[in-house]
């Protein structure tokens, strides 16, 4: 695993990606710090992070698009398969390398509140609490990006899908106000969601029956639940959209709440998508 980690880091710093990633992250938070902390003279550093979090839409796909897609295109994945390391070790090594690249600019950013505190009252606990949550949110997006990269051998495609997914996640709370809040609307949306899930399962396992099975069982469950208690479906869709938003969870920290459930949520997202990535890589062996 450390071999993969070191190797990945070398690749990132050989190419421009690590530098572009770091530069954009620093630029966005830098602009935020200038606007909020310097010009508007607000002492809350967490607002800067809230402002800067939009940058994930661009920089996460830049960093993660090649991580597995490029291995596949250059056929270097065959080397990884033939080495005496497990797929889990490969994925973890790659993911830790991404985290390292991500942590370096965050170390620089972590100095900002300290600098500002020299010139006024900065509430350091919320600043660093938010920074920690900011790190976890980014780490969760990186895990999603790694998974998307494992689905294709086309970097551009991985990046494009990554941007769409993170953008939708960013606006999902805003959008949730416009979607149908009625019970039947929510049930219909769940049907569509499960259909998509079925397609995903079918793609990942290559097993038609399993894909349909998952989809139909879930749909049957929703239908039964709906017949049993239609009232519980009222406003369900907006609730789900808000619940799925990684950005929404972060806003709790910005408001000064150290939300443990959010941390558990981010950690689950990371584990879930890394697990899916391992499955996606393993599946290719069974193609």
């Amino acid at each position: 695993m450390t071999a993969v980690l070191r190797h990945e880091l070398r690749l990132y710093f050989h190419s421009l990606t690590a530098y572009i990633f770091g530069a954009l992250l620093l630029a966005f938070t830098g602009i935020g710090a200038m606007l909020y902390n310097i010009q508007a003279a607000v002492s809350n550093f967490e607002f800067v992070l809230s402002f800067g979090s939009f940058v994930f839409v661009i920089i996460v796909p830049i960093l993660t698009m090649r991580v597995i897609a490029e291995e596949r295109r250059q056929k270097t994945d065959q080397l990884l398969y033939s080495l005496p390391v497990t797929t889990t070790q490969v994925v973890l090594g790659k993911y830790l390398a991404l985290l390292t690249v991500y942590l370096l600019p965050l170390c620089v950013i972590s100095l900002y509140p300290l600098i500002f505190s020299q010139f006024g009252d900065v509430y350091l606990l919320t600043s660093y609490g938010s920074l920690f949550a900011f790190f976890l949110m980014g780490a969760a997006f990186l895990a999603v990006g790694v998974f998307l990269s494992s689905l294709t051998d086309n970097q551009g495609f991985a990046a494009g899908i990554g941007i769409v997914v993170i953008l939708l996640n960013y606006y999902s709370v805003a959008l949730s106000e416009y979607v149908s809040a009625t019970a039947i609307g929510s049930a219909a949306a769940l049907f569509v969601l499960f259909l998509a899930l079925g397609v995903l399962v079918r793609c990942l396992t290559g097993n038609e029956a399993l894909g349909w099975g998952v989809c139909l069982v879930l749909m049957a469950a929703v239908t039964a639940a709906y017949l049993f208690s239609p009232a519980s479906f009222e406003g369900l869709l907006p609730k789900i959209m808000a619940a799925l938003s990684l950005f929404e969870r972060f806003s709790a920290f910005v408001n000064g709440v150290f939300d443990l459930t959010a941390i558990v949520y981010y950690a689950s997202v990371i584990i879930f998508f890394l697990f899916l990535t391992v499955q996606s890589l393993e599946k290719r062996r069974y193609a």
């Binding site: 071999a3 070191r6 250059q74 080397l79 005496p84």
Partner: peptide
């Protein structure tokens, strides 16, 4: 299965470590 941006030495070091 080569990484084109690396040198042979770096590449072989990685494989050896792995």
């Amino acid at each position: 299965p080569l990484y084109l941006t690396e040198t042979p030495e770096e590449y072989l070091r990685f494989v050896g470590e792995a």
